[in-house]
Amino acid sequence: MAIAQNERQVALLRGINVGRAKRVAMADLRKLLADLGYGDVRTVLNSGNAVFDAGQVAPGVSATRIEEALVLKLGVAARVTVLSSAQFAELMAQNTLAPALDPARLLALVLNNPADALRLAPLSQRPWQPEALAVGTRAAYAWCPDGVLASKVVAALGVLLGDGVTSRNWATMQKLDALLNGAAASV
Rank of each mutant, 00 (worst) to 15 (best):
Y38A: 09
R42A: 09
P122G: 13
K152E: 15
W128G: 12
D53K: 01
S62M: 05
P103W: 03
G75C: 12
A98R: 07
T81Y: 01
R30I: 11
L157M: 03
A117V: 04
V154W: 01
M92Y: 00
R20D: 11
V159I: 14
N112A: 15
S151C: 11
A142T: 06
S62K: 04
A27Y: 08
R23M: 13
A178I: 11
R79W: 00
A104K: 06
T81H: 04
R8E: 07
S124H: 09
L101C: 08
A108M: 06
T166C: 06
G19Q: 12
W128I: 14
E68C: 08
V24A: 05
S84R: 00
V61P: 00
M26R: 09
K22E: 07
Q94N: 02
A58D: 08
L91R: 13
L149T: 12
Q94L: 03
R119A: 15
A21C: 01
W143V: 11
E68F: 00
L107K: 10
A69V: 01
A98I: 13
L101F: 10
W170P: 07
V57N: 02
L180M: 03
L133A: 12
T43L: 08
L149N: 14
L179K: 04
V135T: 01
T43A: 11
R8A: 15
Y141L: 04
L133I: 10
N49S: 09
A100W: 02
S151L: 08
F52H: 04
L32S: 10
T43W: 02
W143D: 14
N169Y: 01
Q5S: 14
L176N: 02
A78G: 01
S151E: 02
L179C: 13
V24M: 05
A108H: 11
A155K: 07
R105M: 15
A89S: 12
N181E: 11
R8Q: 14
E7R: 14
L118I: 06
E131D: 03
T137S: 15
G162N: 06
D53S: 10
N46G: 05
W143N: 07
L91W: 06
A63T: 02
A78Q: 03
A77I: 02
V71G: 09
Y38I: 05
Q56R: 15
G48S: 07
